[in-house]
Nucleic acid binder design. Structure first.
Lengths: 188, 188
DNA sequence: TGTACATCAGTGAACGCGCGTTCACTGATGTAC
DNA sequence: TGTACATCAGTGAACGCGCGTTCACTGATGTAC
């Protein structure tokens, strides 16, 4: 039966949020349209009133996941200042909690692999998110524009790599990875 | 019809090699048993004379992919010495060629994401490979044992993250990632 | 404000497809004599 | 070395399953009067 415009918008939001979480937990191939709809409290048939294809949902969900991280960073920036916010970000990133909860974590660490094998449009969404994140991280650093950006990119690559490898490894190797990439030592 | 023991061993080798390549190109979910067998010049039905399950093949193929990298590194070590070998490794890793050819590249950069969602036994194979690689890379460095290992782990994380992000991004962002992670600058 | 009707969000069965795995079968290989 | 037979690597049809997508249907919502 038809629902009100407001209810439909809420459904839409729930679909995107469910997708953003399930995608990061299970990956693109293991996230089914039916699974997302079920998580959103709906049945699979109604999906196509909201999106034309699964791919369209993926783009929206990945965009949303990046936006969530940016909002988190912005809030920290305002609360503790840029330097402290970046330290917080790093410490939270390289943590057992982050490794164990991909659904709430960084979309780059959860999805880079899958998106590397996906459509060009999804890569554009992903690349734009990464670029915005790196720009934000570079803000909290010292030095010339280009050097800051490159440094932020190197750091971000390390964070993403460390968490991905930790997730893909036995607990002992995961620990090695995390403890090696904590903040104390900054040189590569 | 039955084939000779020798032919069977050759089939086995071809199956594992095909799997190791296709896995890195397409990921675990998009690599089918039939696809691997076809690539090996066989039909899918015969697969189960070689492996009990697809998972068993995955473990063998991932192991093989790591062994290939180790053999490459060992050869370079002998030819050019440890320092030069590590420089070569880094330069080859952060290259457009590596980004464009996942099938011949680092298994960590190609599969970390997928393996993070797989069985504990596959994670053990992966983690062991990563550990051996890091140990090899630490060999070419200076300083105390623990510091060398941590530094090698940080570098490896950066390399893996950079290539994964480059593969998942639009060309412009991919370039930013690669150029930022080249050898010239070593600090994070 | 009230009524009559068109719209359309959501449902659940159905579609064609590719997957991992099983199985009866084939015929060259390996072995026992 | 030659023969007779058991073995088993490889084939291709078939299985049950979950997938993305389609569709006829339902009935509350939104709108035109």
């Amino acid at each position: 039966m038809r629902v009100s415009r407001e209810e439909m918008e809420q459904s839409h939001t729930r679909i995107v949020e469910s997708a953003a979480r399930l995608l990061r937990e299970r990956g693109i191939e293991n996230t089914s349209v039916a699974g997302v709809m079920n998580e959103a409290g709906l049945t699979h048939g109604g999906f196509y009133r909201h999106f034309n294809t699964k791919d369209e949902l993926l783009e929206t969900a990945v965009e949303q996941a990046f936006a969530d991280v940016e909002r988190w960073l912005d809030a920290r920036f305002e609360k503790s200042g840029r330097g402290a916010a970046i330290l917080d970000y790093h410490a939270n990133y390289i943590s057992k909690r982050h490794v164990d909860q991909p659904g709430k974590g960084c979309p780059a660490a959860a999805l880079a692999c899958d998106i590397g094998r996906s459509s060009a449009s999804l890569k554009t969404v992903f690349g734009a998110g990464v670029k915005r994140l790196i720009a934000k991280l570079a803000c909290g650093m010292r030095g010339a524009e280009e050097r800051r950006k490159a440094k932020a990119a190197r750091r971000f690559a390390m964070l993403v790599g460390a968490v991905m490898i930790a997730r893909a490894s036995d607990p002992e190797t995961a620990d090695l990875m995390l403890s090696s990439c904590k903040m104390e030592e900054n040189d590569l």
